[in-house]
Design a protein around this nucleic acid. Structure first.
Length: 179
DNA sequence: CCCTGATTCGC
DNA sequence: GCGAATCAGG
């Protein structure tokens, strides 16, 4: 049952090429592809002769993490409870609720979008909404694919869901005269 | 110390 | 061919 992580299959290589071309760092790519270390990614990149793209490090490296921990790529390997194991073969699970029936903010408008531009991970680009739609383990799995807000991984609609303002305290005042 | 890619080299 | 270890650098 232990599906030895498929090494560099055509699909994985293709994905690697696309992500590298998109300017993602080796570590980011490694996380997204799953089952490989950033070194593996770099090694492959070199063997493929892809290195030396637009080296715009520095800005991207030191200033990372500004996107808010809520998002990142929703593909997160979750197989073991290990603190930080870098080689999780199993697959996906995502943070934000899938198609959800999230209470509270009912989004200002139904918005006639969505269904039309779903894309597979292969067609997902950096500028596209990475909101997961459907079962990640199903071949039908898609991402929203809408125009992502610059700097964020989601389109306006999904960003609202992903980044909900801190739940507003409704009623939780302690008994007066105490603290 | 965080991160980045580049290179080496045993497997 | 692969990738951990290492190197060089921001």
């Amino acid at each position: 049952m232990t599906e030895a992580v498929p090494s560099w299959t055509d699909e994985r290589v293709e994905l690697l090429r696309r992500l590298w071309d998109d300017g993602l760092s080796a570590s980011q790519i490694a996380l997204q592809i799953g089952g490989v270390s950033r070194n593996a990614v770099i090694g492959k990149v070199h063997r493929l002769g892809l290195s030396g793209r637009v080296k715009s490090m520095g800005a991207a490296s030191q200033g990372r993490r500004r996107e808010g921990l809520a998002a990142e790529v929703e593909m997160e390997v979750v197989v073991a409870e290990e603190p930080t194991l870098p080689e999780p073969p199993a697959i996906v699970a995502h943070r934000p609720a899938p198609d959800f029936p999230l209470p509270q903010k009912p989004a200002p408008e139904p918005v006639a979008l969505a269904v039309s531009e779903r894309v597979t991970i292969m067609d997902l680009r950096e500028s596209m909404c990475r909101w997961p739609m459907g079962d990640p383990t199903s071949p039908d799995f898609r991402f929203c694919g809408g125009r992502a807000i610059t700097g964020l991984p989601y389109c306006t609609q999904h960003a609202q869901i992903a980044y909900q303002p801190a739940a507003e305290r409704k009623r939780d005042r302690r008994v007066a005269g105490f603290r």
